[in-house]
Design a protein around this nucleic acid. Sequence first.
DNA 1: CACAATTAGATAGTGCGACTCTCCTATATT
DNA 2: AATATAGGAGAGTCGCACTATCTAATTGTG
Lengths: 202, 202
Amino acid sequence: MRISELARETGIPVATVKYYLREGLVPPGEATSATQAQYDERHTARLRLARALVHVGGLSIDRAREVLNALDTPDLSLHEVLRVAHSSLPPQLPGEEAAPRAASLIAELRWQVHPDSPALRQLEQALVALESVDSPASTAALVKYAQVARGLAEGEVASVPRDSRDTAATAMIIGTVLWEPILLALRRLAQEAVSAEELAGP
Amino acid sequence: MRISELARETGIPVATVKYYLREGLVPPGEATSATQAQYDERHTARLRLARALVHVGGLSIDRAREVLNALDTPDLSLHEVLRVAHSSLPPQLPGEEAAPRAASLIAELRWQVHPDSPALRQLEQALVALESVDSPASTAALVKYAQVARGLAEGEVASVPRDSRDTAATAMIIGTVLWEPILLALRRLAQEAVSAEELAGP
DNA sequence: CACAATTAGATAGTGCGACTCTCCTATATT
DNA sequence: AATATAGGAGAGTCGCACTATCTAATTGTG
């Protein structure tokens, strides 16, 4: 198929498809002449995944490229692919500072996480922000959230298929990146529902 | 205190403080002359909250202003403040389309949510994206996530103080906006920990 | 087979959001 | 009096995700 068909199929403007090709989110088609190239279903699948990572997962173009490239690197283990995904997720915090509060919580939970994990710095930043607005996080609340998070993570890791590395890696990326907005949306909806039940009247 | 002190106190550049003043995130100080104004602790608190909403919560300047203005509007109920917060959170999806999949899930759960809730559209978008990458969400998984989300939301609503409306509204905003990144960070850390335990070796 | 319509690819331009800079005048400080 | 900010407003910058334009080659069509 040609580029216009690829665009129509996925609902993405041709100019944007070209942009994604240029940026390396999607591999080039097979050139049949100087001004013609062929694309197939793998291109449509890749394009849809790229779009989802960017528009639903909120990844930047650069980070989406890293994630997609990791999928194409067969010698990366699932654990390494997961690390790439985590370091690509927003927000992208600059710097490399220590995260004492976050680290001590993780130590208390006895979780095995790398001390450079971006999520640690994100957690730290949020904890500091809560202190700055004079509403520090209680350890009890943090532990509760952590246990909930762990319950979800166990289910997610368990549901990753084990047939081929590619399938597993793709499933892991999708689970990590695209389920995140689902969790957020459901939390917001639950808050609204609970609030409607308990605070609506007076 | 003068603007430079306000800036030093909060660690925010003077130019940015001026910008936030201009944008109405922080109320003007009391002018004592044509080129002098006084600020107090309420300004520092407001500035810190604005910074946290923008940098940790990821709100745009416009949305942060809306949230802060809602806090200053005493005739808004807690439920209404919550709605403002929810409609200010990223991502900001354009359009106003129906969300059939999301709505039917909510109906099944018997949650009372407004059909125009932005979270519904976010959920719908994520569900559609999952289908597009050929990895549709199972109802079982969604229900599990929803129950988890509800558990969190109940705790959050229960922990909102009931003394004054202002305190309650501020706590609600903080809980909704600033705990969101904590949940995400903990989910990622839990994934990493579980993955380290189960997938690390071979 | 002429010819309008596409296509691939490269380069430049757009629009937006969050700052950040520059000025200018009017105090405060020494 | 001299020097150093302060306040305020408008302009400028920067990064990012597109989007438009241009060119040369090709393709399908009447």
